[in-house]
Structure formats: structure tokens, C-alpha cells
Write a protein that binds this DNA or RNA. Structure first.
Length: 434
RNA sequence: GGAGAGAUGACCGAGUGGUUGAAGGUAGCAGUCUUGAAAACUGCCGUGCCCGCAAGGGUACCGUGGGUUCGAAUCCCACUCUCUCCGCCA
């Protein structure tokens, strides 16, 4: 959530930017409630002060019956004011949390996905001397995916991923782990992009796949209507993560980190679950949009000062990874409407899918500034002793299903095989094709 | 699933009704000493919110939510989580 003080000081700006993000909020009402809760708080604190004074007076001798009566009266007065305050506070908090993060000045204003900006196009759409197929037309006949049986067992949007495709997934995983733990690669990317962040390698991490409601809500990522599955029995209070990001960004919930720990850079691997409600009929073929998929996700906790550069580094790593696979792509800067409620900035990488004759989203990079950390209470203690909310960044390394679909479509051969990108071959027993 | 123990500040850890916002220790900061460092010693050192230009003042917070009381970290109830042992199990 945003800092209420910031909203007080910049009401018009917040109104304007909230609307641009597609999250219009009644800021006037919010400020009205803010005023009410503050005056109510002042009243309550005054009453409590009197109660405390009385208690201090009485702690020695035996209180008289008048004193006890006065104390009881104060207690009742405080209790009724507290009920009023609670009502105001609840409405206030709900409204405050509905205010989206403010986009960075560099984020283009837009009212739909169409207003996203193509920053650059790298590579050219793959050329074929035959009509390229959709990945499912290759993978299903080759028995690399079996969605028919998966639907029998688990329903639609699930798949058995088999044989060489299963091997390919772990080759990609190995490649990414090797890349982001390599300090020299990070140094190079930092230098090439004129960044001043440190080349601290990523820590590989295998997070839990479920999390509780309270941290999930605080992360501003729980979307029970469209995305998030409940896990276990209702009394378990657990959700299946929709990304490792969700179990990673919440990791330091209610913690104060010493500045020397930062930046914390994780590369998480997790099976992710999404309900995909509202996408009926979309991407039903193949493994592009699944209820369950495995994903490699980068998560960074940093000081406020380095948050934006960490964001840029993550995008640079994403580009590097896609380039290493030899896939054509576009880097997209998302507009105010598309970056998402908790984001201050966001980029997508859209990779070329020749079987669909279009670029499709395979990566996203999110910079939340302190928006997530404020609610998560993840703070950093600076060397000078001051406290600040950390800045959080997350970014896809690879969503395995989608990137394998892209590999299949871009590197398909006329006879329905798939050429393996060179960087993956060491992890595929040197094989050049599956 | 059965039985038990516990949850206090950045960390460890005292504290069973009234100067306890909280002993002591560690870490951190400043200083004394030292050629420098270490050690020793001295001092400082929680967070949120409200009022205030500031200095400062007020208030809340000892897992969470209720309750008892003039007064609760301390007593009562419920819940959550953690740990230990047994059982089960990858």
C-alpha cells in the first residue's frame, strides 16, 4: 500500500495516476476518513491519558468508591469511542489498500494493452521453408505432451510433459541456475547497461508452494477471484502459489534486515498454479496457458536507492537469457494501465511464436518500490541506524511451459523435430535435436 | 493422529496485577585507552500513530482476538503459529 502521508500531500497526483492505472479510488473519501480517524484517535488518547493518570494516582493506597466509579465511567467512554474508531479504521484501510502504486514518471500513460511501448525488437521472426506448426501440433504427435490423459485425471489445462521435453525443462533449469549464479556474467551485464549495482550472484532457492492468507494479502498478489487456488482443506488457510514470487516476496515478512544483507537476489524454482478464470476458450491448445506450470523466478530485495537499477538489471538478465536461447523477441515497456496495481514500473518480453505468427508474453518484470514492503513490513536498517522499507523487484527467468513452446515453434524442423539451442546442449547429453 | 512445552525489543533472554516500554547480555553507534587493532571501561541505542515549525508532548504495542480489573506482558477464554516426544510417511 501507499504511505497515507504521501496521499495527503499529493492528493491530486494520486487521483490522476490511480485513474491512469485503471484503479480509480475515491481519494476525497479516503482523506475524509483519514481526518475522522485522526480526530477520533486524539479523543481516545486523551481519555486514555486521564485513565492512566488516575491509575498512577491510585496505585498506592486503596481507591475510594468515587474513584472507582470515575474509572469505570472512563472505561466505558473509551470502549464506545474505540468501537467508533474501529469502524472508521476498517473503511479507511480498505480504501487505502485499494489505492494502486504510483507509476514512475517514465511509465507511458495508457488505457489499454495497446498503449504499451515496444522498446526494441531483437532478432527477426524465424523464417521457414515450410509452414511452421503450432507447438501442440509437434509435441502431441511426438508424445512429448499428453493433455488428453491429463484432462481425464486432473481436468482441462493440465498436461503430462514427457520424454525429451521433460529433459529439456531440466536443461533450461540448469542453464538458468548456472547463468545467474555466475558473477562474471552479472558483471558484464551491469557494465553493458551502465548500472552501478553490485554483481552479487543470485541464490538458488526452492520455496514452499503454498502460503497463508495473511502474508499473501500483504504481498498484494492474492487474487482469489481469477488466479489463486485454495490449497488443502478450508481450515488449513493455505493457498497454492501462482508464482515463486509470492512465496519469495513474503519471505522477510515482518522483518528488519541489516543493510549489508542487501541486495538479496534469489532465483526460485516452483510449480505454480493459476485458475485462469475468465480465459475460457483462450489458448486451449498446447501448454501455453496451464493451471499448473513450473517457473523460474527472480526476486530481489534492495535498498530504496538501488531499486530501479535492480529492476533494470533484471530486465537485462531476462534479455540475456532469451538471447542465449536464440529466440526473437520484443522488449515491451508496459503502460500505466497494464503494469498492475502494486507496480511502479513493468516490462514484458514477448517472444516470437511462429506457429501463431505473433509475439506472445513469456516474461514480465515488476518493480514495486516500497509498495509491497510497506504492507509486508519488510524494512532495512541502514548503517546510520535509520529504517526504511525495502524495495522489491521480481522478474521471470523462464516460465518453463511457455518457453518450451517457443523453443518448439521457433526451432522446429520440417519433419516435426526440434533443434536444441546450443547453450542447452551440455545439459541434454550434447544432443542437438529432439 | 496422540501427549507435552512455548511465543517478550535487531538477536538471546529476565519478568505472575500498579514508576516494566520492559532487567541482563549480544550486536550496533559515540568516546576513553592504544602507534594501530583487540581487550577493558564510559555513554547512547525499540516501533507505529497523533499533536507540534521545532524542542518536545501524548498514546499504543510483550503471537492474535476477546474478557476480568480503577489498573494487565503478568489473571481468564478462544484462536494462530512454533518446538519436543510418540505414531504415520517421501
Amino acid at each position: 500500500m501507499l504511505d497515507i502521508q504521501f496521499i495527503r500531500d499529493n492528493a491530486d497526483f494520486v487521483k490522476e495516476k490511480s485513474a491512469q492505472k485503471g484503479y480509480p479510488v475515491d481519494i476525497d473519501r479516503l482523506l475524509e476518513l483519514d481526518g475522522q480517524r485522526r480526530s477520533k484517535q486524539t479523543q481516545i488518547e486523551e481519555l486514555r491519558r486521564r485513565r492512566n493518570e488516575q491509575a498512577a494516582d491510585l496505585k498506592q493506597g486503596k481507591p475510594t468508591s468515587e474513584q472507582i466509579e470515575a474509572g469505570k465511567h472512563l472505561k466505558e467512554e473509551i470502549a464506545s469511542r474505540e468501537v467508533e474508531a474501529k469502524t472508521i479504521e476498517n473503511e479507511f484501510l480498505t480504501l487505502l489498500k485499494s489505492v494502486p502504486n504510483m507509476p514512475l514518471a517514465a511509465v507511458p500513460v495508457g488505457s489499454s494493452e495497446d498503449d504499451n511501448t515496444v522498446i526494441k525488437t531483437v532478432g527477426v521472426p524465424t523464417l521457414f521453408d515450410f509452414t511452421p506448426k503450432h507447438h501442440h501440433e509437434i509435441a502431441e504427435p511426438r508424445d512429448l505432451i499428453d493433455k488428453v490423459r491429463a484432462s481425464k485425471i486432473a481436468g482441462s489445462r493440465f498436461a503430462y510433459i514427457k520424454g525429451d521435453l521433460a529433459l529439456l525443462q531440466f536443461a533450461i533449469v540448469q542453464f538458468v541456475f548456472q547463468t545467474v549464479t555466475d558473477e562474471t556474467i552479472l558483471e558484464r551485464l551491469i557494465r553493458e547497461h551502465n548500472l552501478s549495482v553490485v554483481a552479487k550472484p543470485f541464490t538458488p532457492i526452492l520455496p514452499p508452494a503454498v502460503l497463508r492468507t495473511e502474508p499473501y494479502v500483504a504481498s498484494a498478489r492474492l487474487n482469489a477471484e481469477e488466479v489463486t487456488y485454495r490449497a488443502g482443506q478450508p481450515e488449513d488457510d493455505l493457498w497454492l502459489n501462482a508464482s515463486a514470487e509470492h512465496t519469495l516476496c513474503t519471505m522477510y515478512w515482518d522483518e528488519i534486515l541489516p543493510e549489508e544483507m542487501l541486495p538479496i537476489r534469489y532465483l526460485g524454482y516452483s510449480t505454480s498454479f493459476r485458475r485462469e478464470a475468465g480465459t475460457y476458450g483462450k489458448d486451449t491448445d498446447g501448454i501455453f496457458r496451464m493451471h499448473q506450470f513450473d517457473k523460474l523466478e527472480m526476486e530481489v530485495f534492495s535498498t530504496p536507492e538501488t531499486g530501479i537499477e535492480e529492476h533494470e538489471l533484471l530486465v537485462a538478465i531476462q534479455e540475456y537469457l532469451v538471447q542465449q536461447l536464440g529466440l526473437p523477441y520484443q522488449l515491451i515497456q508496459k503502460c500505466t494501465f497494464d503494469i498492475g496495481k502494486p507496480n511502479a514500473s513493468g516490462y514484458d518480453i514477448n517472444t516470437w511464436f511462429p506457429g501463431q505468427n505473433t509475439y506472445r508474453e513469456t516474461h514480465t518484470a515488476d518493480y514495486m518500490a516500497d509498495y509491497q514492503a510497506r504492507d509486508l513490513k519488510t524494512r532495512v536498517r541502514s548503517h546510520d541506524g535509520s529504517l526504511a522499507f525495502v524495495h522489491t523487484n521480481d522478474a521471470t527467468a523462464f516460465a518453463l511451459g511457455r518457453i518450451m513452446a517457443a523453443i518448439i515453434e521457433n526451432f522446429q524442423t520440417h519433419d516435426g523435430h526440434v533443434v536444441i539451442p546450443e547453450v542447452l546442449r551440455p545439459f541434454m547429453h550434447g544432443r542437438s535435436e529432439i
